[in-house]
Computed example of a mutant assay.
Amino acid sequence: MTNVNGKIVASSEAVLSVKNRGFNYGDSVFETIRAINGKLIFWEDHYFRLMASMRIMRMEIPSSFSPEFLEQEIQDLLEANNLQDSPARIRFSVYRKEGGFYRPQTNDIEYVAIAEPLPDPFYLLNDEFYEVELFKDHYVNSGLLSGVKTNNKAINVLGSIFAAENDYANCLLLNEHKSVIEALNGNLFLVKGNVIKTPPVTDGCLKGIIRGKIVEITKKLDSYTLVEESISPFELQKADELFITNVVMGIQPVSKYRKKEFKMEVAKDLLSKLNVQARLV
């Protein structure tokens, strides 16, 4: 079942126009949300990021788009898919109404939401071999738009194809200054000693929800020092650990980059603290 503009319909009957601006121009923003037994994890963070993304894209935010209204829309979707008592992944997409070419005829919006089951209620550490490489065919331009979750994901698609063709689990993306900014599907953290480093949002990385939680957690711990600074490719092989974060998998440790193999002790420690955060929400 799918939520299309507030109506729950069978997914086989959910239809988007061939003139849909999200399809034709990538004129769309979205949030991927994790739910556990009907509870939307870090919902407030998702809501405010969605509102910020819509403002940046100059979309008209309906007066009805309160946190309570959108949460209920998602709850109705979970119930329609019998997912209110199990872990689930929700994608909530907002797109500008059709009309116009590059210049839209209206800034009014429509939306669609889908829900799918997840195997585990909380974040588990995946300690299977996980090798990454730099994707250097294309660069992400640093700036405000790079931090918005839009449908413009050509670099991520091409990088994923490159990774699959070369037997890598993931690839790391570079900005126009050749700084490492993130992975194909999440934010990047580098550990050296007791320093945990992650690229600043101004470098072009996504303002990830779990990125924000890890920053928040580590800043409260005396055992680590959190630094938001640009990461050079040369730093990767000198690191003790690398890990990737996103809202679905939580924390994914990197096993290998080129000739360097990494530990995962800090990733394990932070994952347990992240699960505590998720339970407290």
Rank of each mutant, 00 (worst) to 15 (best):
G6R: 05
K7M: 07
V9K: 10
A14P: 02
L16E: 08
K19F: 13
R21P: 11
V29N: 10
V29G: 09
F30Q: 12
T32V: 12
R34G: 12
A35Q: 05
I36H: 09
G38P: 11
L40D: 14
F42V: 06
E44W: 08
H46Q: 14
Y47M: 04
Y47E: 08
R49V: 13
S53N: 11
M54E: 12
M57P: 03
E60G: 04
I61V: 15
P62A: 05
P67E: 08
E71V: 01
Q72S: 04
N81V: 02
P87Y: 12
P87N: 15
A88P: 01
A88N: 03
F92R: 07
Y102I: 08
R103A: 11
R103G: 11
N107P: 00
E116S: 07
P121N: 14
F122L: 11
L124Y: 14
L124P: 04
L125N: 09
L125Q: 11
L125S: 11
F129C: 03
E131K: 13
E133N: 13
K136W: 00
D137C: 02
Y139W: 01
N141G: 13
S142H: 08
G143D: 09
V148N: 12
K149I: 10
N151H: 14
A154N: 14
V157N: 04
S160Y: 00
A163G: 06
N166A: 05
N166V: 07
Y168Q: 10
H177G: 02
I181F: 01
L188N: 07
L188Q: 03
L188A: 11
N194M: 06
V195M: 04
K197Q: 15
T202R: 05
C205I: 15
I214D: 05
V227P: 02
E229K: 02
S230L: 03
I231N: 00
S232D: 06
F234A: 03
K238Q: 15
A239H: 07
F243T: 11
N246H: 08
Y257C: 06
Y257T: 03
M264Q: 12
S272A: 15
R279C: 09
